[in-house]
Design a protein around this nucleic acid. Structure first.
Lengths: 104, 104
DNA sequence: CGGAATCCGTTTAGATACTG
DNA sequence: CAGTATCTAAACGGATTCCG
């Protein structure tokens, strides 16, 4: 546990710390590639506008891949990038922690 | 990895997910009990107002203990609660992840 | 003096409606 | 279907003020 902690954890949170980002990442980790509508259905609490925005930020940070198929109807698929997959431990730990605490 | 993940991670984020909360928790974990001024000095990026607010929320969620000494000058000490200490793995993993990615 | 409350501007998130 | 547009509400940031 080094003293990069000071800024390390800050910058980690900038990538992960959007209000819904861990949830999005967790779903992509658990269930693999998903299209926009599926994600939206799996997280009905998030409005489309916010979902779009959070996905774009995750894409910008290199954690998710976004693939657009130029079809009618349109199709856009999201998946974890290699980099995003390195978050697996963190995400499952967070999940385990909640389970342990019992606050649902 | 169970399907409580759906809401589990959401509620975890409500407790941990304030913009500065992981940073605060990490410092308290690493360095033990700290008074307000020390925390403020260790995190100069956070304004006092926001720091106060985040600490109060952490207290409300049972993750930190807040002890007020009725003295002149006043003294307020913060420390991780037992519950807060269960976050250790998550926090150090987050730190390790940033180190691994190299994005500072 | 340390810790925090207040006022106010900016940034981020939520709700709803609408379009290529 | 997968967004954008718009508007409102909540969270954050900066400075100042307050109180024991």
């Amino acid at each position: 546990m080094k003293d990069l902690s000071k800024y390390g954890i800050v910058s980690a949170l900038q990538a992960i710390g959007g209000k819904w980002k861990p949830h999005i990442l967790f779903i992509l980790l658990e269930k693999g590639t998903k299209r926009f509508g599926e994600l939206s259905g799996l997280m009905p609490e998030i409005t489309q506008g916010v979902l779009t925005q959070q996905l774009r930020e995750l894409e910008k940070d290199g954690l998710v891949n976004r693939v657009v198929y130029q079809e009618i109807p349109p199709r856009v698929e999201y998946s974890l990038s290699t980099h995003g997959k390195t978050l697996e431990h963190i995400l499952s730990n967070m999940c385990a922690w909640v389970y342990h605490t019992g606050n649902l």
